[in-house]
Design a protein around this nucleic acid. Structure first.
Lengths: 116, 116
DNA sequence: TATAAATATTCAAATATTTATATATTTATG
DNA sequence: CATAAATATATAAATATTTGAATATTTATA
């Protein structure tokens, strides 16, 4: 039972592994958004946004709701935001590491050590 | 400040988007593991494991420690496990969705509805 | 029903990732 | 120092993803 589960999870993470799709998901933190709205927020063309949404949709990360000629998308499981939050924390820790490293480099050189 | 951050985060998620790398990270839940041990656990050849580790290393997800001719790897930030745990919960919710769907299909057909 | 607006799909070219194989590097030991 | 063991790197072929352009579909409305 190991192989398929990990394959499946990998697919999920792959779906998150694209800048535009991360921006889309961040937009959806505020609730439903129409494709139009996402287009504007992303500054990408219609087809590209639609393709990215298709990927998130196919992985069941996002759900569409049709209203007339508009389509509104939302994140299916709010726990996804929790996941993104944890990821953000990891990045922040990371940045602190980087800053510590830069600070140390700073001490050896003649620049003042950068602060937090 | 939006573009590069999301690019960076996408790189991180991409690094998680591979079955072998997820297995590696699961192995590292138990603490340090040597490349050898990972090789056995993954049933992949040496070079392949090394390549997957290189990807995790380059993204600063994992840190190597050399001891003689062995190299031990560990997850740099334990919060990564928290992230994997949240992901797991999302998958479980997902499975429940799938099961509910299957159950409903079952009612319409002549099979008994599968249970949790 | 013809048209326009919003979204989705198809397709192909460009780019990136994966995988296998071969080779290199590092360290311990005879 | 020669050799073996453990790990890493380079390379190329196979495969997958991304991107843009063109086309299709759906819905509302004149």
């Amino acid at each position: 039972m190991q192989q398929p589960v990990h394959r499946f999870k990998a697919e999920f993470f792959k779906a998150l592994g694209h800048p535009a799709r991360l921006v889309i998901l961040d937009q959806l933190r505020g609730g439903e958004r129409s494709v139009q709205e996402l287009q504007r927020a992303l500054d990408l063309d219609q087809s590209n946004v639609s393709q990215q949404l298709a990927i998130l949709r196919n992985k069941n990360i996002v759900d569409p709701r049709k209203e007339g000629t508009l389509v509104y998308y939302r994140v299916r499981d709010p726990m996804l935001f929790q996941l993104l939050d944890v990821a953000r924390e990891i990045f922040n820790n990371h940045l602190i590491d980087t800053q510590a490293m830069l600070a140390q480099l700073g001490e050896d050189a003649d620049e003042p050590a950068p602060r937090t």
